[in-house]
Computed example of a mutant assay.
Amino acid sequence: MTNPDWTLMIHGGAGAIERSRTSPETEAAVRAALGRALDAGADVLSAGGAALDAVEAAVRVLEDDPHFNAGRGSALTREGTAELDAAIMDGATRRAGAVARVSFTRSPVALARAVMEQSPHVFLAGIGADAFSREIGAEQVDNGWFVIEERRRQLAELLARGADAFDVDMKYGTVGAVARDRSGRLAAATSTGGVTGKRWGRIGDSPVVGAGTWADDRSCAVSCTGAGEFFLRVGTAHEIEARVRLAGTGIAEATAAVLAEVKALGGTGGVIVAGADGTMVWDFTTSGMHRARASAGGERVVAMYGDEG
């Protein structure tokens, strides 16, 4: 669909999201959280605010909700700690900020924006990102604040089986948002805890500009979720944008084609895309994706399963 005014889409991860595997309590909580995040971003846009502010606002709500794999509730490393990744990008200027392996910053997406606006760099990682976070006065929390019991259980089950990352039920995932504001500016943001049992300083696609996150006012803004190693190999977010901008492919067609390429390599996941013309597209190759969208025209959709929205 298209709309001449603002649009907003969010996701809370793609994976084995099915009615038969989701309790009524969990479904209600997830839908409520998606709704709160959607409202946070929509409030910015409906007041004439910038797409960049809207995507940050939406993602920060999801980072604080333990039902998603970002911020509090993140997947745990093999050592049982949380290492957080995020990126944000302004489609008007193509300025971007990203952080990886952050351990103590409450909002990784806010820190990614600070990297973009308060440093000469694009991407900071590990102890350097943590040092920058403290230096600029970003809100700090103990690493244990990010850890919830369900994530401990998932890690324990993985270790008991002698398995490795990706050998765990991918039910909760990365969060992200894309938006177009009233001025036609686009933005994208993504935040994640990665995969259960990750080690050796593993970093996925979410904080990698061009792989899991991209925005360009000339075409579209993209945020991805799924098996990061495969999204990295395809350069998914930029690949979608390039097909739209350079080849003139429709956004829905470009998104489907690139996700098919990811799947052909062995990866699954989902994507949300906001077009410069107001087009909104989501697509996924899993049984479901936590997702929501809103527009100035009054549309408001919150969905989880494959047969919705």
Score class of each variant (00 low, 15 high):
N3V: 09
P4W: 00
P4G: 00
H11L: 08
E18T: 10
S20N: 04
E25G: 07
E25S: 13
T26R: 15
V30A: 08
A32E: 15
L34D: 05
R36Y: 06
A37H: 08
G41Y: 08
A42H: 08
A42E: 15
A47R: 14
G48F: 03
V55G: 03
V61C: 11
D65M: 11
R72Y: 02
I88L: 13
G91R: 07
R94F: 12
A96V: 11
A100M: 13
R101H: 11
A110E: 15
M116R: 13
Q118T: 00
S119N: 07
H121Y: 13
L124P: 13
D130F: 10
I136K: 04
E139C: 00
F146H: 02
R151I: 03
R151P: 11
E157N: 02
A160T: 01
R161Y: 00
R161N: 05
D169S: 07
Y172E: 13
G173R: 06
S183D: 14
T190Y: 09
G193F: 12
T196H: 02
T196G: 01
P207S: 07
T213N: 15
C220D: 03
A221Y: 05
T225R: 05
G235D: 13
H238I: 11
V244R: 02
R245D: 04
A254D: 10
A256P: 05
A260M: 02
E261L: 06
V262R: 03
A264Y: 03
T268L: 13
G270Y: 04
D277H: 04
A296C: 07
R300C: 06
G306L: 07
